[in-house]
Simulated scan of single mutants.
Amino acid sequence: MSIHKQETRKKVTTHRLRKMKENGEKIAMLTAYDYSMARILDAAGIDILLVGDSASNVMAGHETTLPITLDNIIYHASSVSRGINRSLLVADIPFGFYQGDSKEALKSAIRLMKEAGAHAVKVEGGQEIKESVERILTAGIPVMGHLGLTPQSIYKFGTYTVRAKEKSEAEKLLRDAKMLEEVGCFGIVLEKIPAELAKQVAESVSIPVIGIGAGPDVDGQVLVMHDMLGINNEFHPRFLRKYANLHEQITNAVSSYIEDVRSSSFPNESESY
């Protein structure tokens, strides 16, 4: 077996992610919410699987990520954890379970580690959640930050437009990124910010920076699995590259199944006992 194949099969850890950044090796991250898909993504070689609060949108049909609960995330993350052997499993702490109360934040993180089998947790925000991040880290729980467009704050922003185009917001984002590194976060997601700013952040910190709509000059990329596989047919942001059109394929498959059932061509003799 080649050294490269051995490396790709090794368990992904926060330490390995940092080494990947140091070596200029890009990190691939996707969302996952169930056992069957997690098995496929893990076997394909994905580095990080994120059980995101985006489950609120793509799994439950909510308009925002706000309604999803910690119990919901635990359900999805525990399903994913049973389907992986190699990937690092990161779980979002949902809205209302860490902001403003560091003790609540720690309890939430512990539940995700104990009940869901997560390897790390992700939280949105900078200086305003510093105390919560620090308290989680005191328990030895790895934390990934999330800056830029933070969907849990959508009603504060009022729009899903690109963040940190103004100088003051860009400067704050850079300070927040450095703060998250200093307190001990192992990585940061940057969502929907100017590519030049994302590059500056990635060069300013020693921890991996994963982008979504943040240009190519970061340490890795993340997409929502339903979006990149073309299951979600209504979402067309500039940053999304669709690698399949499962919406069309599934529709065609189901249509063929319905036709075969109604015409009595399914099941045939060889499919019967």
Rank of each mutant, 00 (worst) to 15 (best):
R16T: 15
K10Q: 12
V183Y: 02
A195H: 08
V205Q: 00
D71R: 00
K10T: 14
K103G: 10
R111Q: 12
I3K: 10
S263V: 08
E7V: 15
G45W: 04
G230Y: 03
V162C: 08
E169D: 12
R241H: 11
A77V: 09
A77I: 06
L49D: 03
N232F: 11
G52T: 09
V133I: 15
V58I: 13
N85Q: 11
A32S: 14
E169C: 01
M29P: 00
Q221T: 09
G52I: 05
A55G: 15
V261F: 11
L197W: 01
G140L: 09
A170Q: 03
L30W: 04
Y33S: 07
Q152W: 06
V201S: 01
R135N: 12
I110H: 02
Q99T: 11
I212W: 00
H146K: 07
E25P: 04
I231M: 13
A214M: 03
P194F: 05
V51S: 03
D71Y: 02
D47P: 06
E128Q: 12
E203C: 01
P94F: 10
I110K: 14
A38I: 13
L240Q: 02
N245G: 09
S36H: 08
E128I: 15
E269A: 14
V183F: 05
K26M: 13
K19H: 12
